[in-house]
């Protein structure tokens, strides 16, 4: 894959095939921790951090360990364990060496293990047969797309607090409908093809 291919892949992963609005990976944190733009940004940064590293780690484990041994069918189990261990390691490392970043990301890190975007990116990398560089780039770009979506949506939700909807729509339904409208805007990118 040439450099331009990788760039186009990244562009596609951020906008055209946005993880939330076109693939639905990572909807739980998207709807759960998007009440304030600041927390949304924290979550997005934590996901970006973990997803980039886990894309590299899962690629290495799949092609260096599982494939030579013919154990490809164990990839789901192996990947989720790698991600869980990685999240734990990153948490310990940050607490020890980068306390400022730990304070900013701390509470979001444990939630990332069960974020399907992280496992989803790892599995897409294998399914599409990306090389190492492309895998890392794809993981990073997909996480950027996730961050973009969650931060925009948090901005929308701040406005929703002043709305006065019918009683049945209060809370979650209104949030979902706002997400639907945002998804409609993002589906405008679907026309972009290279």
């Amino acid at each position: 894959m040439s450099f331009t291919d990788v760039l186009l892949l990244m562009f596609g992963a951020v906008l055209v095939e946005n993880f939330i609005f076109s693939k639905f990976y990572g909807c739980c944190p998207f709807l759960g921790v998007s009440e304030k733009p600041a927390t949304a940004l924290g979550m997005g940064m934590a996901v970006t951090f973990v997803m980039t590293i886990s894309s590299a780690a899962t690629w290495a484990v799949y092609y260096l360990i599982l494939e030579p041994l013919g154990l490809q069918y164990l990839k789901t189990i192996a990947f989720i364990l790698i991600i869980a261990a990685l999240v734990q390691l990153i948490e310990m490392f940050l607490r020890r060496f980068v306390p400022a970043l730990y304070a900013a990301l701390g509470i979001y890190l444990p939630l990332i293990t069960t974020n399907c975007a992280v496992l989803g990116a790892a599995l897409v990398n294998i399914q599409k047969g990306y090389g190492f560089g492309a895998s890392v780039a794809y993981g990073f770009a997909a996480a950027l797309g996730f961050t973009l979506a969650i931060v925009i949506f948090a901005g929308v939700r701040v406005r929703l607090q002043f709305a006065d909807p019918p009683r049945a729509f209060r809370g979650f339904p209104l949030t979902l409908i706002a997400a639907g409208l945002l998804a409609m805007a993002f589906s405008g990118f679907a026309g972009i093809r290279f």
Binding site: F172, L176, M184
Partner: peptide
């Protein structure tokens, strides 16, 4: 539109609103 991603969010939103209406 109902098959597109935005349709998924909208349908679920309206369904949950219906459930909340019944609960109310």
């Amino acid at each position: 539109i109902f098959l597109l991603p935005s349709g998924a969010f909208l349908t679920l939103g309206f369904l949950i609103a219906g459930v909340q209406k019944i609960c109310n």
